[in-house]
């Protein structure tokens, strides 16, 4: 079965301000995007499980024009603080790449 990493054109993470992380899962054809979107594998419960977060804090947005799925949640610690290992949030998307996309 294809994974999200197989289907996506670009997956990236970044800070959205110093207290939030945001992950963009982007596609280059509408069919791959709709397949991933409609499979609903990127949802609050799945993200909460993968990242050990509270589902109530997680935002998942589908952007049909950008052919992108966007996930945002509060950082476990603010950017650059003592326990932070990723000041710009650039490497926090990897766990999503292995999600299997049915269809």
């Amino acid at each position: 079965m294809a994974t999200l990493g197989d289907l996506a054109k670009l997956v990236r993470s970044k800070n959205a301000g110093p207290f939030w992380l945001t992950i963009d899962i982007m596609f280059d054809d509408a069919e791959a995007y709709r397949r991933a979107r409609d499979a609903e594998i990127v949802n609050r419960a799945a993200i909460a499980r993968l990242y050990n977060r509270n589902p109530a804090d997680i935002i998942v947005v589908n952007h049909d024009t950008a052919l992108a799925i966007k996930v945002s949640f509060p950082r476990p610690q603010s950017s650059g603080s003592k326990h932070d290992s990723d000041v710009y949030g650039g490497q926090q998307y990897a766990p999503l790449l292995g999600l299997e996309v049915p269809g």
Binding site: K14, A16, T22, I59, V61, H63, L67
Partner: peptide, 17 residues
């Protein structure tokens, strides 16, 4: 492209809309 321009609203924001 329309997609590349629309995609930029995603950048460094929690909510693109």
């Amino acid at each position: 492209t329309p997609q590349s321009v629309a995609s930029h609203t995603l950048y460094e924001n929690a909510d693109p809309f």
